[in-house]
Amino acid sequence: MTKQEYTITVYTENQIGLLNRIAIIFSRRKINIESLNTSPSEVDSVHRFTIVINETEDVVRKLCRQIEKQVEVLKAYYNTNDEIVWQELAMYKVPTEVIASSVKVERLLREHGAHTVVIRKDYTVFAVAGQREETDKLIKVLEPYNLIEFVRSARIAIIKASDGFHEKLKEFEYREPGEDAIENEFLNENEKVFSM
């Protein structure tokens, strides 16, 4: 089995220490986390982790089961890149005088869909939301123009086939969870959300 990029989406309770509990599942197995984001989810009180790793499917499936085993984790899904819509946000700080004096720079920024976040006398900050290659490209482009600072956020991802977590959460809140809450990966049904 070959390694590829997988995006793991974890729905959890909002609990101090849970980030560590999830992170050590990877570090214990000497697996590098490429990117990790925590945010609220579509459901009030439910938290959402988005984790990107480069691994084989077999390993990713086992990792997801270990994640789901944690008491405060509701559900973990894993998806390949073509099963999700994903973005990262990048910010670039460049000297304002370069922007002002070079028409070329302005054109480049426009081409890359950058928008201005702040303009000061000494520097200007641009932001681009997009995929890795796109934000990487703009670094290359801006490097000759004295790029002062660069930062990129973790990946956030929407699962194409997901109906959201509202209905699923009801299952969890029942005393006896229904079948849907206990999806069985052995059925390997890839139709809807591919769940572990």
């Binding site: 959890t12 309770e13 008491v71 405060e72 984790v73 509701l74 959460l169 969890f172 809140e173 005393r175 969870p177 079948e179 809450a181 206990i182 069985n184 052995f186």
Partner: peptide, 17 residues
Amino acid sequence: CEHIRSYRPKPIVRKEY
């Protein structure tokens, strides 16, 4: 305590298996 929503101590038994 008898229930924690994010914790399922016993998975549902699947008859087909």
